[in-house]
Design a binder for these strands. Structure first.
Lengths: 306, 306
DNA sequence: CGATCTTACGGGATTCGTAAACATA
DNA sequence: TATGTTTACGAATCCCGTAAGATCG
């Protein structure tokens, strides 16, 4: 069949330089080898490409007709090389991640800062989503990877922990729960509850703990945004269980937070990846930046419930 | 360096079929050979293209990024193959010829008819020109070949005779030259002459014959078009020496033509080609049609002097 | 005769296929 | 265990470079 790129390079070099000898020098092969290459190309294409007049070599009409097409093949091949090199060296490409809002506002900016400094040409796009949707996005390969809580054992995905996020009880000033250094789930369920809606990691952890302890609860409201839940708590509608770090992000005036002593109520946050899928060089590098960033304390958290 | 088309075919087959085994069947190679090819391609591009999960093979993100580029290379390569095949089989292409007007109106239509019947996809373009310009067009490679008279020995071009065109003396009814069965140049130069202009083959032959015989002439007019010369002869301005066949093409009422016995006054018309240049398949085939057509008598001649 | 392309041929690298090993569902 | 990919290795092929041949200016 047709031979390969080297034959096209040979053709173009001779078409340009008008000499086998010159072209052989440029291509770093011997001149007889070039003769053979052109002969092979001519045979495989079934047409004569050059008229050899001993002193000069010139394209035949057929050669002239084919020249632009062969040029395009080589140009395109060079594009492939350039782009794959750029992808490998992260001079281009993109990373897409589905991330819990708390992480998107807390850990992520630091990671993006680190990564963006090293690889300014990689576009990073972040989809902030609740735990359930992150898992879906990872499994459907909408995203390169997710950052979230690994709540449901799922053999389709791998999990690698980045950080552990403790939950706490949020209640208004002057609430009966005040003054205790630690609380338990059993203490909390005696009061009306405001919780993030289903599908969030906090809610999943909470529901699981409730079921395990076989407790009854009085859920007065479900919120999408963490800040809404906090507002309701401050207004005296009830108490809530939320990430401890939220105390730093939201306006928590008129509120108290106390840690909760319950094994189930810790949010293990990490990288969620589809099994048997390799990360692109850029994504792999960004994950690295995330791991580094997770070793320094986070400054801020978002106001969305997740 | 990068390997070749076969690697790209391998990549695309696997990307499409999602299986090394299937692709190997399609490509008619063994499956281990395919593994090696992909490994080579990945190494030469410096990126991982597939995630092998034993049960399925799926593109990596990088592979997906590169897919359209590699597809384009193969598409382009297939274009090259298709076009060269078409050029070879004369399913496409064009032929350009510089042709004497008498031939363009006489021999050429028959040749075009024959050729066009067999190869309807080849475009034929004809430049009608006088002998001098035909030679120039051939040497500058404006045209694939010329059809004309080989008047000036020129090592840059080859000549292959197609037909011989005799010249005759044209004079008005009742002219003193009337009634002779043959004439000589010496008979003719006694009268005022109307001749095709310099650069035409007829004029060149004439001038050469005059010079060789060391005759003096009375040139009253030079014409570009053969029909003009005939009109002037009919009007009694003088006599002319023109291709005998012109008697059939122009309106020659009130005129007589007699053959001339002079060795120099035959026009040898044939294919004029640049030396050491091969003809395209289409041009070569058209030349063949010309040779065939030149073996049947011509019906008409043009009215232009050449 | 000098420059240049073509042909011939031997050595070396590449590629292929068979067979065996390995991995996953 | 069955399916499918990777590794290993011997054999065939392909490709290259050197040397000799041919051709044109």
């Amino acid at each position: 069949m047709y031979q390969g790129i080297k034959h096209i390079q040979a053709f173009l070099a001779i078409a340009r330089l008008g000499s086998f000898t010159q072209s052989a020098l440029e291509l770093h092969i011997s001149q007889p080898a070039l003769t053979v290459r052109i002969k092979q190309l001519e045979e495989s294409l079934g047409v004569r490409l050059f008229d050899r007049n001993k002193r000069h070599v010139v394209l035949t009409q057929t050669g002239r007709d084919l020249l632009p097409f062969l040029e395009r093949v080589l140009t395109d091949m060079e594009s492939v090389l350039r782009i794959s090199r750029e992808l490998a060296c992260m001079k281009c490409g993109s990373v897409t991640a589905a991330v819990l809002p708390t992480v998107a506002a807390g850990l992520l900016p630091e990671a993006i800062r680190r990564f963006g400094g090293k690889y300014p040409d990689i576009a990073i796009s972040v989809i902030d989503a609740i735990a359930e949707r992150i898992l879906h996005a990872v499994k459907s390969e909408e995203v390169d990877f997710g950052i979230g809580s690994y709540l449901w054992t799922d053999r389709e995905v791998d999990f690698e922990e980045l950080l552990v996020d403790r939950l706490g009880v949020f209640f208004p000033d002057g609430h009966p729960l005040s003054g205790r250094s630690r609380l338990t789930l059993r203490d909390v369920v005696a009061y009306p509850l405001i919780m993030p809606c289903r599908g969030t990691s906090v809610r999943s952890l909470f529901d699981r703990a409730i079921e395990k302890a076989a407790l009854k609860i009085d859920l007065v409201c479900e919120t999408v945004y963490l800040s809404t839940a906090i507002g309701m708590v401050r207004a005296g509608l009830g108490v809530s269980i939320l990430p401890e770090a939220a105390i730093r992000a939201a306006d928590c005036g008129g509120m108290r937070m106390t840690g909760i002593d319950d094994d189930g109520l810790v949010r293990r946050i990490g990288i969620i990846r589809k099994q048997n899928r390799s990360l692109s060089p850029a994504a792999g590098c960004f994950v690295q930046a995330l791991k580094e960033a997770s070793r320094v304390p986070m400054a801020y958290f978002s106001s969305a419930a997740d």
